[in-house]
Design a protein around this nucleic acid. Structure first.
Lengths: 338, 338
DNA sequence: CTGAAAGCGCTTACAG
DNA sequence: CTGAAAGCGCTTACAG
């Protein structure tokens, strides 16, 4: 191609029509005759012309793009995307693509640099927030975002501002724990942060308590070990810690599959068998769960659908429609680890 | 916020300066006095003003964004991102962010819809291509992309047009297989596509052959089973197939960790122990590899660095600098599966 | 169905 | 260091 960028004027010239007509033909306006359109499209293709997004966006006053902000856990290696969000991201990419929206993806650290969210809000018509939703840290910025008229949908729990899409974590935690109880476990450990900083995990913990209560069991603080992040290493360490504490336990509910995998690793290293010595159930049902050894009993989250629902929600918000938060059912998948 | 979008004119009015000055202050131009700048920035912040990207991009004639195209395997569920690319994507997001570039992510199917690549090239200053690089299918579009002056860097193998960043797959395949050989395996299966459609896997296969040759072993076609995708299921099926064929084997080199995990699953299901009955080594060293049971012996790819190198390369290309393709060393990590 | 014209919100020579 | 003005490439009333 030559130096100068090819514009709609070039195409117009070659096609012997006005630039307006080229624009209409390119955007699929019905105000162009079939013949003219085809002629223009052929020339455009031949000259490798595509309409300039910046100009088009500027003129239309919208960007046809969605921004996905992934909140990294500052504790950990920050170029890692939690595999759970990866699936969600995949589904989002897919749905957005079908709706002809581009998606901008970026890492964020809500607590420190909320201004970035505004920047992104300026590049996109809507924001999709992915993270384990620290309610406490993010509340302020969420509110400001809402105030400034920014459209956003976040993954997570119902509490907090704005529209949220998430799993029914409490129900999931309940089902997981009840399963452990039903197969005979009585001293069940919980691995995961259950402070208000991790509302989703907290809900899972609450579900765990619900199930225990149903069996007349008081949650034992000695069996609950918090964890900074949802990663295998953290599960491993937490479980080691538990083991070293000398606490007895015959069941373990890990707030995520990654944590469960780390726990199983630690358990095996300590010579405990799963599920015989300790039955473990995870949460998420990531693709690997089925192939782990032993195959993970876990709570399935329908991330595929979740991603789709999130983009539907943000698209509706952008159109100015009212949107309700939504909590999706989560279902226990029984395999071999418990 | 009120209806009308706040522009640099609004800020200028409030700050008592010209719009030009606001623009300069916002972009960090040195042509503004310290005082003026601070005053403007304060007002901008107060009014939630950020410069309009579309307008800015249009004017500057660049977009300050990179597009990452992930080539999905049309065979499989297409909202799934291969976890290997996820790590790469994370590193890319990180590096691009540091360089103040946005990144647009999208799924693509090269073979059918190459036009999408042009579309993306129009929205971004440069393209990053992630996929197992079907040389045959993509060659044409890569060439056209290059011709049309589009800057792109692809993940993968050296062959083919344009700049590529990848691992030394052949070396990796060689090391993996040699390790199997050194620990006594003699009949080593290879799981993975080794046609020209998967140049990376093919290289790994070639490395496998190299190692065998060194031990005076002829590759046995009966021990090589192709696979459509790099997923656990595929590894499982391929291994089942191998098992059912009655072929004897005491070692197995899977072209990816996912494949290895599927293989181990199939092996265990058939009552074979790993590594005692069959030693298996994978490729990638994904985060789970270390936590798998048994922990995977595998070939580490430095995806963290790879992502970084890819963005450095594309940024250099955008600046008009010459860039060389690069092959990164891959290193065997010995754990327990072999 | 088609064209001429205005204008989206910036950046950046140009002039001071 | 600051301002007035042109122009980036489109889309879309408006007029025919």
């Amino acid at each position: 191609m030559s130096k100068g960028k090819v514009t709609s004027f070039d195409i117009a010239y070659r096609a012997g029509v006005s630039q307006s007509t080229v624009s209409r033909a390119m955007s699929g306006s019905p105000l162009v005759s079939q013949d003219t359109r085809e002629h223009i499209l052929a020339i455009a293709r031949e000259m490798n012309y595509t309409v300039d997004k910046s100009a088009s966006n500027l003129r239309r006053q919208h960007s046809a793009t969605l921004a996905v902000l992934i909140f990294e856990d500052p504790t950990i290696d920050d170029s890692l995307i939690n595999p759970f969000f990866t699936t969600l991201l995949g589904a989002i990419l897919k749905s957005a693509g079908q709706a002809n929206y581009d998606v901008l993806v970026s890492f964020q650290q809500f607590n420190t640099d909320w201004h970035a969210a505004y920047l992104d809000s300026n590049k996109a018509d809507g924001l999709l927030l992915l993270g384990y939703g620290d309610y406490v840290a993010s509340q302020g910025v969420l509110e400001r975002l809402a105030e400034s008229g920014t459209k956003f949908v976040r993954w997570g729990n119902l509490q907090g501002s704005g529209v949220s899409i998430g799993s029914d974590n409490r129900q999931g935690g309940y089902t997981a724990t009840r399963h452990l109880l039903q197969r005979g476990a009585r001293r069940i450990a919980f691995i995961g942060d259950c402070s208000e900083h991790s509302p989703e995990f907290r809900e899972r913990y609450l579900g765990y308590c619900d199930a225990l209560a149903e069996f007349g069991i008081e949650p034992d603080p000695a069996l609950q070990v918090g964890v900074a992040d949802s990663m295998e290493v953290m599960g491993e360490r937490a479980t080691q810690q538990l083991l070293e504490s000398g606490a007895r336990f015959d069941g373990l509910f890990a707030a995520s599959d990654l944590l469960a995998i780390g726990s199983i690793y630690a358990l095996h290293s300590a010579g405990r068998s799963v599920p015989d010595d300790v039955a473990v159930v995870g949460f998420d049902d990531m693709p690997v769960a089925r192939y782990h050894n032993p195959p993970l009993t876990t709570v399935h989250q329908d991330t595929k659908r979740a991603g789709q629902v999130m983009v539907e929600a943000i698209l509706a918000l952008i159109k100015g429609e009212a949107v309700e938060s939504q909590q999706m059912a989560s279902e226990l998948v029984v395999r071999s680890s418990a």
